[in-house]
């Protein structure tokens, strides 16, 4: 534990005075609530009301907000990915990953702390999502419904898995490509190409395996939260039925990502 804290303190020394780190972290902290506010505003003011009820339902009130905010935040996961790619490719560009090993870190320690940082960033972003949920939930609280509806808190856990999965894909891109701009470009390209394959596979070929592609399987953990009454009941049942599969495969991918980056960093020339 002492060793871990010591290593973490060294990583802190690396970012403490790094302006880009704080700017990107600030963007993440601001964008998640701001983006949700924009959606909140559109939801409340841009759709007609039927019998005084919004046709999209009440996605920002408890307990729906536990699904809505993580779903919206999931659309912004490229921002923490940019931060992860920047921090990791800095090590490769400055060749400090080599120097850290030369100075006395083991390869295992270096890659472990990078994975741990990714987990900590995922926890931080998840924390922002929780605070945003609480803000909108209490702000939109309907009279007579004072309970936050903690049973839907599972979507926060699903968001954490999704965030960590995207982040680990960013780590892999940074480790393989080693150049910030190119790694970000390939990361975005990968996201777009996989979505294209998913849409094509789903609509044209009715393929179900595409639900288990690396990015899609964690996206599937949080179904779209708007207008629940307009969604066919069998669709919800299908999601509930396949949820254990999405979770299992999502976690298997995460384990594979971690094993791969650890193996790659330990075995290859630096």
């Amino acid at each position: 534990m002492n060793g871990f804290c010591h290593t973490l303190r060294i990583e802190w020394l690396k970012v403490k005075y790094y302006r880009s780190f704080w700017i990107l972290l600030g963007i993440i902290a601001v964008c998640i609530p701001a983006f949700n506010y924009v959606i909140y505003d559109i939801t409340n003011n841009s759709f007609p009301k039927v019998n005084g009820q919004n046709i999209l339902g009440n996605p920002f009130s408890f307990p729906n907000v536990w699904k809505t905010v993580p779903y919206n935040a999931g659309l912004l996961l490229f921002i923490p990915a940019i931060l992860i790619i920047t921090l990791l490719t800095n090590e490769f560009s400055f060749r400090t990953h080599r120097q850290n090993i030369i100075d006395g870190w083991s390869r295992n320690r270096f890659i472990s702390i990078k994975i741990m940082e990714t987990i900590m960033l995922s926890l931080f972003v998840t924390g922002i999502v929780v605070l945003t949920c609480l803000y909108f939930g209490f702000h939109s609280q309907q009279k007579g419904n004072a309970s936050p509806g903690w049973q839907q808190f599972r979507f926060i856990v699903f968001f954490f898995i999704e965030m960590l999965s995207y982040s680990m894909i960013a780590v892999i891109m940074a480790m393989i490509i080693r150049r910030a701009g190119l790694a970000m470009g390939i990361f975005f390209l990968y996201m777009i190409v996989e979505q294209f394959v998913v849409v094509l596979g789903r609509n044209k070929y009715k393929a179900t395996w595409i639900n288990y592609l690396p990015e899609e399987v964690t996206d599937n953990l949080i179904p779209q939260p708007f207008a629940p009454r307009m969604i066919a009941p069998d669709h919800t049942a299908f999601w509930e039925q396949h949820l254990p599969g999405y979770i299992t495969i999502g976690i298997i991918y995460l384990i594979l990502y971690i094993l791969y980056v650890s193996w790659r960093f330990r075995k290859n020339d630096l």
């Binding site: 790094y18 400055f94 080599r98 120097q99 030369i102 100075d103």
Partner: peptide
């Protein structure tokens, strides 16, 4: 050890 080039964080 000084190996090849000086490797440091440019922004620090």
């Amino acid at each position: 050890t000084l190996l090849e080039t000086p490797n440091f964080y440019h922004y620090l």
